[in-house]
């Protein structure tokens, strides 16, 4: 019955952030005995990405192909509903990630494939964005050459303001949520996804905020890799 104030009149969001702040990001690599692995936390969204490859592939493809598998743990979300492995939304996410990373691979390997497994441990909004960031780190950790980082971030529009990095509560209320993935160096957009309605006038501000968010995330990921 009570309307949730996503941004209080004092300018704070539900969790105390200001509209243009991202959540806390933590990342590390090389935690499992796979070719490449990464663990990333964006707020309460935590996931592990593992990469195996490049390895020999049975198909006769000229470029490397990437197989992406998304897996959501049963305890990962707020409710106890069990997620089916073939959930269409997860498959959609896998396809999106595959398309992104196949395009940044430096095409040197033929007849090879790379397996990317994403395991979501906790989901609290921005799962696709976190998955993209995690995959990027894991690929770098595996030593697979890519042209540039790919970072992703969500942004939305609420109470006449653009907000950055939405958590689950914000995503599930009627706020338009834009997920953007781009390569930081040349700011080219690789993925853009949006739910709900957003007026064209406000679209610009939301998009530029998302881009800024991606840059912030890039800096954080870069720092982590170089450690």
């Amino acid at each position: 019955m009570s309307r949730l104030e996503l941004i209080t009149p004092e300018g704070l969001r539900v969790d105390g952030r200001r509209p243009k702040e991202t959540r806390r990001i933590y990342s590390r690599t090389d935690l499992l005995a796979a070719d490449g692995s990464s663990y990333i936390e964006m707020g309460n969204t935590k996931l592990i990405t593992t990469v195996y490859g490049p390895k020999e592939s049975k198909n006769n493809n000229s470029n490397s192909i990437i197989n992406v598998e998304f897996h959501l743990a049963s305890f990962a979300s707020g409710s106890t509903a069990k997620k089916l492995r073939n959930d269409k939304k997860l498959m959609e996410n896998s396809i999106a990630i595959r398309d992104i990373f196949e395009s940044v691979l430096i095409k040197s390997f033929g007849r090879s494939e790379i397996d990317v497994f994403i395991q979501v441990l906790q989901s609290d909004g921005g799962v696709l964005a976190a998955a993209i960031n995690g995959t990027c780190l894991a690929l770098i950790d595996a030593g697979i050459p890519i042209t540039d980082y790919v970072t992703a971030c969500t942004a939305g529009y609420c109470n006449e303001q653009a907000i950055l990095d939405l958590n689950y509560i914000e995503e599930s209320s009627e706020v338009p949520c834009l997920t953007v993935a781009l390569t930081p160096k040349n700011e080219k957009i690789l993925l853009m996804n949006m739910e709900h309605r957003l007026h064209l006038d406000n679209f610009d501000s939301v998009l530029s905020l998302a881009k800024t968010g991606c840059q912030t995330i890039y800096e954080s990921l870069d720092e982590c890799i170089r450690k």
């Binding site: 499992l32 005995a33 309460n44 743990a73 049963s74 305890f75 990962a76 979300s77 707020g78 106890t80 441990l121 906790q122 609290d124």
Partner: peptide, 24 residues
């Protein structure tokens, strides 16, 4: 370690086995 679950535990055996249990 999983704060969305009512209880959780992670066991990591040196040598590779890693198991994560979440109770809701």
């Amino acid at each position: 370690i999983i704060n969305q679950a009512s209880g959780s535990c992670r066991v990591s055996v040196r040598g590779g086995t890693e198991v994560l249990v979440g109770i809701k």
